[in-house]
Simulated scan of single mutants.
Amino acid sequence: MNVLSLWPRGWTRQQRSTATIAAASALLVLVMLFIARPLALLPEPIGPAAQEFAEGTRVTVWLTLVAGVLGIAIGLVAAVAKLAAFPPVRWAADLYVWAVRGTPLLVQVLFVFLALPMLAPGLRLSDFNSAAMALAVNVGAYNAEAIRAGILAVPRGQTEAARSLGLSPLQTFTDVVFPQSFKIALPPLVNNVVALLKDSSLAYVIGVVELSNIGNRVQAATFQPVPVFIATASIYLVLTTILTQISGAIEHRLDVEQRR
Rank of each mutant, 00 (worst) to 15 (best):
residue 254 L to A: 09
residue 96 Y to P: 10
residue 231 A to M: 02
residue 90 R to P: 06
residue 98 W to K: 07
residue 49 A to N: 14
residue 174 T to E: 01
residue 94 D to P: 00
residue 8 P to K: 07
residue 3 V to N: 00
residue 77 V to T: 13
residue 88 P to M: 08
residue 69 V to M: 04
residue 112 V to E: 11
residue 222 T to Q: 07
residue 128 F to L: 15
residue 42 L to K: 02
residue 115 A to Q: 11
residue 27 L to P: 00
residue 140 G to H: 04
residue 231 A to I: 05
residue 248 G to Y: 02
residue 20 T to W: 00
residue 43 P to K: 03
residue 109 V to R: 04
residue 202 L to K: 05
residue 39 L to Y: 07
residue 28 L to T: 02
residue 94 D to E: 15
residue 8 P to S: 08
residue 241 T to Y: 14
residue 31 V to Y: 03
residue 17 S to I: 07
residue 65 L to K: 01
residue 19 A to E: 04
residue 49 A to F: 04
residue 222 T to R: 06
residue 152 L to D: 11
residue 154 V to A: 12
residue 221 A to D: 13
residue 114 L to T: 11
residue 41 L to V: 02
residue 112 V to H: 10
residue 224 Q to R: 15
residue 50 A to I: 04
residue 179 P to G: 12
residue 55 E to R: 15
residue 116 L to P: 10
residue 30 L to Q: 00
residue 240 T to D: 06
residue 94 D to A: 15
residue 43 P to S: 08
residue 86 F to H: 12
residue 226 V to R: 09
residue 126 S to R: 06
residue 135 L to G: 02
residue 250 I to K: 00
residue 106 L to F: 14
residue 209 V to F: 03
residue 170 L to Q: 02
residue 254 L to T: 07
residue 32 M to H: 03
residue 129 N to P: 00
residue 26 A to D: 00
residue 224 Q to A: 15
residue 171 Q to C: 00
residue 257 E to M: 03
residue 8 P to Q: 11
residue 153 A to G: 09
residue 71 G to W: 03
residue 198 K to C: 05
residue 47 G to D: 06
residue 64 T to E: 05
residue 116 L to K: 08
residue 112 V to R: 12
residue 150 G to Y: 05
residue 88 P to R: 05
residue 16 R to L: 07
residue 237 L to E: 05
residue 146 A to H: 10
residue 73 A to C: 09
residue 244 T to I: 00
residue 208 V to T: 10
residue 101 R to E: 09
residue 218 V to R: 11
residue 126 S to T: 15
residue 127 D to I: 03
residue 246 I to D: 06
residue 79 A to N: 12
residue 115 A to T: 14
residue 168 S to G: 05
residue 148 R to H: 08
residue 252 H to I: 00
residue 58 R to K: 15
residue 57 T to R: 10
residue 15 Q to L: 12
residue 228 V to A: 09
residue 122 G to T: 04
residue 228 V to I: 13
residue 130 S to F: 14
residue 251 E to G: 14
residue 119 L to W: 11
residue 63 L to M: 15
residue 90 R to C: 07
residue 103 T to A: 13
residue 51 Q to V: 02
residue 160 E to R: 08
residue 74 I to T: 10
residue 35 I to P: 01
residue 179 P to S: 13
residue 240 T to C: 14
residue 12 T to A: 14
residue 150 G to F: 07
residue 90 R to I: 06
residue 217 R to A: 12
residue 115 A to P: 04
residue 114 L to Y: 15
residue 11 W to F: 08
residue 132 A to R: 11
residue 113 F to H: 15
